[in-house]
C-alpha cells in the first residue's frame, strides 16, 4: 500500500467513480434534499461522516464474518451495523456535540437508508481493500457525494426561477439536469494516476 494507491482510490471515489453520477448509489437523498444548497451541504457532510465510520466498522465486521465462513451474510450484517451505528452516532452527538446534532438535524437518521453507505461497505469487500484503504474510500466517497449534491443543489436553486415548459417543471427538469451532470462526470473517466 502506498500513497499513490490511496490517491488513486480518493480520485476514483470523488470523480471517476463518483457514487452518484457513476455508480448511481444514494440517489434518494440526492434528489430528496437538494432543493437548497445549505441543506444539501448538511446532508453531504452527514453522509461523509457516516460513510467513513461505516467503512471502518464494517471492515471489522467483515473480518469476523470471513473468520466464521459467513461471507454470504454480508449484506444483512452490514445493514444491521449501519443502522445501529447511525443510531449510536445520533445519541452521541445529541449528548456531546449538540451544535453539530442540530446542524445535521433530520438528515442523520435519514442516512440509515442511504444505499451509498451500504454500497461503500460492500465495495470495500469486493475491492479487497485493507483497513486504511477502506476508510479512505469511505470518506472520499462521501466527499464525492457532497460534491455531487452541492453541484446539483446549486443548479436546482437556479432552476426554480427558470421558465420551464409546464410538463418539465419541478422533478422532470431536475432529473434531466442530473443526467446531464452525470454525462459531464463521464469526462473524468479519462483521468489516471500513476
Amino acid at each position: 500500500m502506498s500513497i499513490t494507491s490511496l490517491l488513486a482510490i480518493s480520485l476514483g471515489a470523488i470523480l471517476t467513480n463518483n457514487f452518484i453520477f457513476a455508480q448511481f448509489l444514494g440517489i434518494c437523498p440526492f434528489l430528496g434534499v437538494s432543493k437548497k444548497i445549505d441543506t444539501a451541504v448538511g446532508m453531504g457532510a452527514a453522509v461523509t461522516f457516516v460513510m467513513g465510520l461505516a467503512s471502518a466498522v464494517c471492515f471489522g465486521i467483515n473480518q469476523l464474518l470471513v473468520a466464521a465462513g459467513l461471507e454470504y451474510m454480508q449484506t444483512v450484517a452490514f445493514i444491521l451495523v449501519i443502522a445501529a451505528l447511525v443510531q449510536f452516532v445520533e445519541m452521541f452527538l445529541k449528548k456531546n456535540v449538540p451544535t453539530l446534532y442540530t446542524a445535521l438535524g433530520v438528515y442523520l437518521p435519514l442516512i440509515t437508508t442511504n444505499c451509498a453507505v451500504l454500497g461503500v461497505a460492500l465495495l470495500n469487500v469486493q475491492n479487497d481493500y485493507n483497513f486504511i484503504q477502506s476508510v479512505v474510500y469511505g470518506i472520499t466517497g462521501g466527499l464525492g457525494f457532497l460534491l455531487a449534491i452541492f453541484l446539483f443543489a446549486a443548479v436546482r436553486e437556479q432552476l426554480e426561477f427558470a421558465d420551464n415548459p409546464k410538463c418539465f417543471d419541478g422533478f422532470p427538469i431536475a432529473l434531466i439536469t442530473a443526467g446531464l451532470i452525470a454525462l459531464a462526470f463521464m469526462g473524468f473517466s479519462g483521468l489516471k494516476v500513476w
Binding site: 444491521l80 451495523v81 445501529a84 443510531q87 449510536f88 445519541m91 445529541k94 449528548k95 456531546n96 449538540p98
Partner: peptide, 14 residues
C-alpha cells in the same frame, strides 16, 4: 448491538 444501543441511550441520555 441492541445492548450497546441500550447502554448508549442511558449514558448519552439528554
Amino acid at each position: 448491538f441492541g445492548l450497546i444501543l441500550a447502554i448508549a441511550a442511558k449514558v448519552f441520555e439528554v
